[in-house]
């Protein structure tokens, strides 16, 4: 209970007040400053640096065949990474996205090969199932007020379990004849084209749509967003739906390219790479800040590192270690550069 006397604080507080800057428009920002101020600036520099390093130090890195390999490796990471960037921005995470990437191609396989459904119908049903799976993740998280780290960890194991049971642990060959096969994944560039298309769509959703602003608001200030009239629960649920659906779609494309379904892979590697791509690209783990362009460049960095070290013939034991160290370095560099930039601009603004 407050002292009653403090209820009367007569008059304005003493002491000099900082004089507010005069009304009027701030000068236009310099283009160079606009570029440097972008969250993606640091990771872009890292990507270019790595590219130049491998291009100059090896002969096999630059070339048609290697670029096909490189893009095929990074395509799933870019798409799942975009989905994770949206969720991280909303203040959530989806640990089951990699498993959705592996599992929903099985659904597609069962529908086409076992049930004899046309390719298009099978894709649609598989994607709707994936969307429902995302909705379940979102509802468990928001309505039961559980951390998504927990709910999606649970759904990861559950989905992996269903995959093991239904496939009996055996691999399947996925063969899609005709044009469907080419469109889905057999043409060398089709997977990266799918990825590019999906990343652009997710970019528009997060950065150009009302829904995207509501995602940022929900992750940045959950209570405040709700007070301002944002339907935060609904927004989060749809973010989960988006993440599992695009993960499932790029999974079907990836499986078609490989013509192979392997229940031995639980998708956690893809999930961790995707989250790493989002985070080294400048998306905050704490919510409210995310960039799809950054996540895409992050996936390119991971791809270049992975592929470049493979070409250089880095010893398999060292491979993981160097990759891990490089991811860590990229994250630290990005965070530090960003902090320095913010400090600099703030000092200019004051």
């Amino acid at each position: 209970m407050a002292e009653p006397a403090t209820l009367v604080t007569g008059g304005p507080p003493a002491g000099p007040e900082p004089v507010p800057p005069p009304a009027g428009r701030a000068p236009r920002r310099l283009p160079i400053r606009r570029i440097v101020e972008r969250r993606e600036a640091a990771i872009f520099v890292v990507a270019v640096g790595l590219f130049l390093y491998f291009a100059l130090s090896t002969t096999a890195f630059v070339g048609y065949n290697n670029f096909v390999t490189l893009t095929q490796f990074l395509a799933p990471i870019a798409v799942i990474g975009a989905g994770e960037a949206v969720l991280l921005t909303a203040g959530e995470v989806d640990l089951s996205a990699g498993t959705a990437f592996i599992f929903f191609p099985f659904v597609f396989y069962y529908l086409t090969t076992n049930e004899g459904l046309p390719v298009a119908a099978a894709i649609i049903i598989a994607l709707v199932t994936a969307a429902l799976f995302g909705m379940l993740n979102g509802m468990l998280t928001t309505l039961l007020e559980l951390p998504s780290f927990v709910t999606t960890l649970g759904s990861l194991f559950a989905l992996d379990g269903i995959m093991e049971i239904t496939s009996n642990g055996t691999q399947f060959n996925l063969v899609i004849p005709g044009a469907g096969g080419s469109i889905l994944g057999l043409y060398s560039w089709s997977e990266v084209l799918w990825a590019l298309g999906l990343v652009v769509v997710v970019y528009l959703i997060l950065h150009r749509s009302r829904f995207g602003i509501h995602v940022v608001a929900s992750g940045g200030n959950l209570v405040g967003a709700a007070e301002a009239g944002v339907k935060t629960t609904r927004v989060k649920i749809w973010a989960f739906v988006l993440c599992s659906t695009i993960s499932a779609l790029i999974g079907i494309v990836d499986a078609s390219r490989l013509s192979l379904l392997d229940p031995g892979n639980d998708g956690t590697t893809e999930m961790f790479y995707a989250i790493a791509a989002a985070v080294i690209g400048g998306t905050a783990l704490t919510g409210g800040r995310g960039t799809i362009v950054g996540a895409a460049i992050g996936s390119v960095v991971l791809g270049i590192l992975y592929d470049g070290m493979y070409i250089k013939g880095v010893n398999a034991y060292w491979f993981q270690f160097i990759l891990g160290a490089a991811i860590l370095a990229a994250m630290v560099l990005n965070v530090q550069l960003r902090r320095a930039a913010v400090r600099h601009w703030r000092s200019l603004r004051r």
Partner: peptide
């Protein structure tokens, strides 16, 4: 309403905050 906690999103620019929940689309 102007809420006691202001209901602003620190990570968003001023103009987005001015239109939060009532964006022009």
């Amino acid at each position: 309403t102007v809420y006691q906690d202001l209901a602003l999103v620190p990570q968003l620019p001023i103009y987005y905050n001015l239109f939060l929940g009532r964006e022009l689309t």
